[in-house]
């Protein structure tokens, strides 16, 4: 394998993106607190962004489309984090806990 053209091979980026997705899903299953699950969700966002950017760099005729798409993903992730954290803080005020096992009551 030619070492100098390592960064020109789409396979490496795609495998790293698949690894990020797998790590995010593992964290989403195994974490027992809401903030831990939020971090795992961010890993899944990162996997999607890296995958889109790789396909954009190597397979798309217009390199701008993927960059705009990933920029929108980042904006949506920021909005999602703001909403999720305010929900988590509201839940913590009511339950004094953010373990997903304790949040078993519903109203309505």
């Amino acid at each position: 394998m030619n070492l100098s053209h390592l960064h020109e091979q789409p396979g490496i980026y795609l495998v790293v993106a698949a690894f990020l997705l797998a790590a995010g899903i593992y964290g989403l299953i195994r974490r027992r607190t809401l903030i831990g699950m939020l971090i795992a969700g961010e890993l899944i966002f990162a996997a999607a962004s890296l995958n889109i950017m790789t396909l954009n760099r190597f397979m798309a005729p217009d390199p701008v489309v993927g960059q705009v798409f990933v920029l929108f993903i980042m904006g949506l992730a920021a909005a999602e984090v703001a909403i999720a954290l305010s929900i988590i803080i509201a839940v913590y005020r009511n339950y004094r806990s953010i373990y997903s096992k304790d949040l078993s009551e519903m109203k309505g």
Partner: peptide, 19 residues
């Protein structure tokens, strides 16, 4: 966005609860 905003916001969430 991520290192400067998202992670810092999550750290605020960590400080305000006991996660």
């Amino acid at each position: 966005i991520y290192v400067g905003a998202v992670c810092v916001t999550i750290i605020f969430g960590v400080m305000l609860s006991e996660p």
